[in-house]
Write a protein that binds this DNA or RNA. Sequence first.
DNA 1: CTGTTAGCGCATTCAC
DNA 2: GTGAATGCGCTAACAG
Lengths: 350, 350
Amino acid sequence: MTKKTTIYDIAKNLNITAATVSRALNNNPKISSATRELVLKTAKALNYEQNRLALALKSGKSHNVGVIVPRIDSSFFGSVIRGIEEEFNPHGYHVIICQTHEDENRENENIDTLLNAQVDGILISTSNTKIDPFNRILKKNIPLVFFDRSKTMNGVSSVTINDFKGGYKATKHLIDQGCTRIAHFSGDRSIEIFNERFLGYKQALLDNGIDFKHEYVIQTKSTLEDGRKAAQLLLEMKNPPNAIFSSSDFTALGAIQEIKAQGLKIPEDICVSGFANEPFTKFMELSITSVDQSPLEMGKIAAKVLLEQVNNSNSVMKIEKRVVLEPELIIRKSSLKTQESNTNLKKLSF
Amino acid sequence: MTKKTTIYDIAKNLNITAATVSRALNNNPKISSATRELVLKTAKALNYEQNRLALALKSGKSHNVGVIVPRIDSSFFGSVIRGIEEEFNPHGYHVIICQTHEDENRENENIDTLLNAQVDGILISTSNTKIDPFNRILKKNIPLVFFDRSKTMNGVSSVTINDFKGGYKATKHLIDQGCTRIAHFSGDRSIEIFNERFLGYKQALLDNGIDFKHEYVIQTKSTLEDGRKAAQLLLEMKNPPNAIFSSSDFTALGAIQEIKAQGLKIPEDICVSGFANEPFTKFMELSITSVDQSPLEMGKIAAKVLLEQVNNSNSVMKIEKRVVLEPELIIRKSSLKTQESNTNLKKLSF
DNA sequence: CTGTTAGCGCATTCAC
DNA sequence: GTGAATGCGCTAACAG
C-alpha cells in the first residue's frame, strides 16, 4: 500500500544521485565498492524493487515473449508451452499466451496486441492462410519463430517435426504387420502438417507396391464422433480395409470403438495407428499405436532459437534455422498382430 | 524495420502538438471533429500503433495479469488457463504464465518477477506453505485471487470446488453400490484439497454407519505406479476392500490395472472411483467414475473476480469473494455394479 | 568514481 | 479547442 520506492528515494536517502544508484544496482564496474554496499543496503532496507516497465520503455525491450496457439488445453500444446516457459524463465523472460481457436482473425488480432505490448519475440503455431500478418511482424524487426504448424518465409526460423516421415513410419509399420488395404483418416489438408502425413502415407504405399486408393482416404475433424463415422463408411465398403492410419488419436479411438461395436477384432481384423501420442493412447487396455511428436523438446528448442534471435536482434545478421524433429513411432497393441512382433515390443521401449 | 511512429511524428506531420494527437486518439470530447479526423487519417497513413509500454509506465497499469500454476501441461490446469485467457482477452489484458513444479521457492520467485513486471493482478493455484509471499503482494495493493489450491486470507478472493463434497459424493456412491469396505488413496494431505477429499470420504462413511479404518487410507503420489503399489498393499490384506475412492485418476487407473492383473473383476469385485475427470477416464473401455471440477468455468470465474478487483483497485473498498463450485460425480463403468443402476446411468447424463 | 542532462512514448494538468 | 510543461522510473552519454 505504501508508495513504491524508486531509485530516487534511495538516492535522496544517501545524498547521491539516481544515476549512481542505478549504476550500483547494475554492478557497473566504475563504482566504488563502498557506495555500492551502501546502495545495496539501503535498497534492501527501503524494500526497493526494480520497475521493469520503466526499464522496458527505456530500453525498448519488454522481456516478454508472446506465444500464439490454437488452444492451450490440449496435451500437445500444453507440453510445448511448458517447454517454452521452462526455457525462457531462467533468462528472465515472461511468456504471454494467446489462443486463436483456429480462427485466422483472432490470430491476427493476437499478433497486433502482442506487437502493441512490445513483446521481444513471437512464437506461433499458425492457423493462418496468409503471410501478410507475419510480414507485419518482420517489418518491425521483431523475431518470429514458427513451431509445429509452420510457414515457409525467408529469414524466419521454424521448429517442426517431420510429419511426412511420421506418416510414412506409421504406414510402413502397418504394412509390416501384413496389412495390405490401408485406409487413412486425414485432417484438413490445407494445413501443411496434415498434408505431409497424408503424403508420407501415400509414399509408404507406393514404396511397398500397394495401390493408393482414393476411397480409402477420409477427411475428418479430430473428434471421436468423426472417427466413428469414418469407420462406418469404411466397414460398409465391399472391400473394407484391414488397417487404418489416422492423423489424429481421437479419430483413431472413435474408429476403434466403432470397429469393436461391429464385432470385429483389433488388431486381428483391423490394425489401427493414431498420431500425436495423446496420453490416453497408452492408458487404454487396448493401447493405441501412435506417433510421438516430442512436444516438450519442441517447445524448448523453439524457445532457444527465439532467444538466440532476441539476443542478436540489433545485429544486421538474420538467423534462419529450420529444425526438424524426428517423429517416433510408438507401437502398441492396436497394431501388433503377431507374437513375434510382441518380442519387438519390448525392444521398442514400450 | 522502419523506426516506430509515435504521436510526435503524426503531430509534426500536422503542425499540431502531441497532446492534441493523444486526445484525438483517445476520443477526448473536447477536440474538434475536424482535427480528430485528420489525426486518425494520418495515424493510419503513418501506420501508427500505440506503445502500451509507455502507457503502462505512465498509468501504472501494465494490462498484464500473472497466472501461477504447478504445471501447465495437465488437463486440469490447461483448461483453467484456457478459461482465464478467454475471459481476459476481450478486455485487453494479456496473460503471463509461470510454473512452479510444486516448488515453494520457484513459486516465490515467480511472484517476485511478476511484481517487478508490474502485473495488474495475480491468479494462483498455490504450492506454498507460507503466507508471507502473498502478504508481499497485498502490501503492494495488487489484487490476488486463489483458484483450486487456495489459502484463507483476509481480503483475498478465491475460486475453488467443494472438495469435501466431491469426496463425500464419490464415497456415498460407492456405498450405494453396496460396497462396505472402502479404501482411500489420498494425496499429500498437507495440501488442503487432498485433506478435504479425505474428510469428505470419512464423513460419508460415518453418515452411513461404516467404520473408518486407518489401514484403508494410503498416501500416494498422483502416478500410475503409486496406484499399482497401493492396490497391491490393499489386496494383500486379510480383509481387502471392495471399493477404492482415489483422490487422483492416475492412481485409480494404476489400481485398476493391478486389480485386473491379479485376476479380480471391476466393478464386480472392487468398485473404483477417481477424481478430476481426466480425459482418459471416459475413453477407457472400462470407463472410470470420477469427480469433475469444471476447470474451464473455474478459470473464467477466477478471471472475472480478478477483473472486478483490478477495475476497482484504486478504491479503498476491499472485495472478498469466496466462490465454491459444486463438484459433479460422473458415474461410469468402474463403479457401476447393478443393472438397475445402469438405468440411472442415463439419467446421470453419462 | 560520480553528477548532470536527456529521453524512452504517452497522458494530463494548467494555461490560453 | 489547443499548446506548453511535466512526470511515470530508469539508463546512458557526456562531463568532470
